[in-house]
Design a binder for these strands. Sequence first.
DNA 1: GCATCAATCGCCCAAAAGAGGTATTTCCAA
DNA 2: TTGGAAATACCTCTTTTGGGCGATTGATGC
Lengths: 207, 207
Amino acid sequence: MDQTIHLAIVEDDNEIRQALCMIIDGSPGFTCKYAFPDGESALASIGNLPVDIVLMDIDLPGKSGIEVTRKLKSENPEIDFIMLTVQSDDDSIFKSLCAGASGYLLKETSPSNLLDHIREVYMGGSPMSSKIARRIINSFRVIQNPLSNREMEILEMLGQGLNYKDIAKDIFLSPHTVKTHIKNIYSKLHVKNRAEAIYKAIKQNLI
Amino acid sequence: MDQTIHLAIVEDDNEIRQALCMIIDGSPGFTCKYAFPDGESALASIGNLPVDIVLMDIDLPGKSGIEVTRKLKSENPEIDFIMLTVQSDDDSIFKSLCAGASGYLLKETSPSNLLDHIREVYMGGSPMSSKIARRIINSFRVIQNPLSNREMEILEMLGQGLNYKDIAKDIFLSPHTVKTHIKNIYSKLHVKNRAEAIYKAIKQNLI
DNA sequence: GCATCAATCGCCCAAAAGAGGTATTTCCAA
DNA sequence: TTGGAAATACCTCTTTTGGGCGATTGATGC
C-alpha cells in the first residue's frame, strides 16, 4: 500500500510556499506536487487532484483561506485541511476549524513539528489547544445573522411550538404584527413555513 | 476576589476519593469540601453547592458518571465537569464530552498534572487529545432515537418545509398516512406542531 | 396464539398558517 | 434630510394543519 501522504499548498508568499514544498517533498513519506499562490487557482484545481491534505494559508490575497477551505471542504470532504497562520489568533483558528479545517500550524513551526502535525491529521487527529477545544465543544459554527432582534425573538418562540396568538400575547403585540415578522423571517431565510425556518435557523446556529 | 477553585468529587472508591480530596484540599488555591460515593447522592446535592468544578468518575456503581454528568450539567451549566477514568478509552471520553464534560483525567495522573488540568478547565479550556478533538469537531452528540425509520424519513422532509401532499407524493403514500405518521412523531417527541418537532429533533440530534 | 407496534388508509371539522396586499411610526445612517 | 430598515398594524382569501375518531395488515415477540 501507498503510505505516502500527498499534500498541496495554498500560500501567496513565494518564498514560504517553495520552502514548505521543499521541506515536505524532501521528507520520506511525504510528497507535495501542487502549490497555489491564491484561493482562486486552488478552488479551480484541488477538487480534481489526488491530495490527502492541503496546507492553507489563512491570509490569502482576495478570498481568505477560511472561505476557500469552507468551499473546498464542502465539495471534497475527504481532503483534510491544515491552516497556516503567522500568529496564533484564537478567533481565526476557531473559524477555520468550523469551516472544516482539521488543524492549524504556525508558520515558524519547525520542520519536524510540521511533519508530526501533518502525520497526526493524516491519522485522523485534530491537534488543537484546550481553549479552542472548549470553544468547539460549547458552541458550533456561528453564521452571520440576517434577522433583527425582534425576528430572532419570534423565531425562538416558533421553535417552542407557539402560534401567532400566543406569541403576540407573550410579547404584547398584535397577532398581525407577529405574522408580518414571521413573513419577513421566511423571506430572509428563504423558507416557506415554520418547520423549514426552524430547520434552517438551527443549522445556521441562529438558535 | 476569591481565586480559590471549589471542587467536588464523585468517586466510589474510598481510597481514591479521599486521596484526591486531600491532594486538592492541601493545595493552595484549591478546596474540596464535598465528596460523593455515587451518582445518586451527587445528583441530589451538587445543584445546591457552591462548586466550580466536579471531578466525576466514569465507572460509578449504578448510574454511570456520564449520565450523572449529563443530568447535572443540564441543570447547572455553570459548573464544569472533569471526568476521571482508569484508562483512556476514546469512546467514553468522547461520550463524556458530549454529555457536557469539559475535560478528562487519568486516575494515575500526577498531582501537579491534576492541578494543572483543573486550573486549565477553570480558566475556560478543555484539554483533550487530538483524536478526541477530531471526533468532537466532526460529529456531535447522538441521542437515542424513539422514531421509526418511516417517521425519521418524514421528519426530515418536514425540515425541508414540505407539506403532507408533497411528502406523500415523494414517498408514494397517501397523505392520510403521512398525516398519521406526523401525528405519531408529535406524540413521541411530545410536541404539538412541525416547528416544535423540528426544533426538538435537531436539538436531540435526530436530524 | 395473543399482544404489540409499525405502517397503511380514511373521514370530519375547527383552527391556524400562508400569500397577497396596504400603511404608519420610529430611528439610524448616509 | 432623506432614504431605508425595523417595527407596528390591518384586510381578504385559500390552503394547510392538527385533533379526534376508526380500521386493516403484517411483523415481531413472549
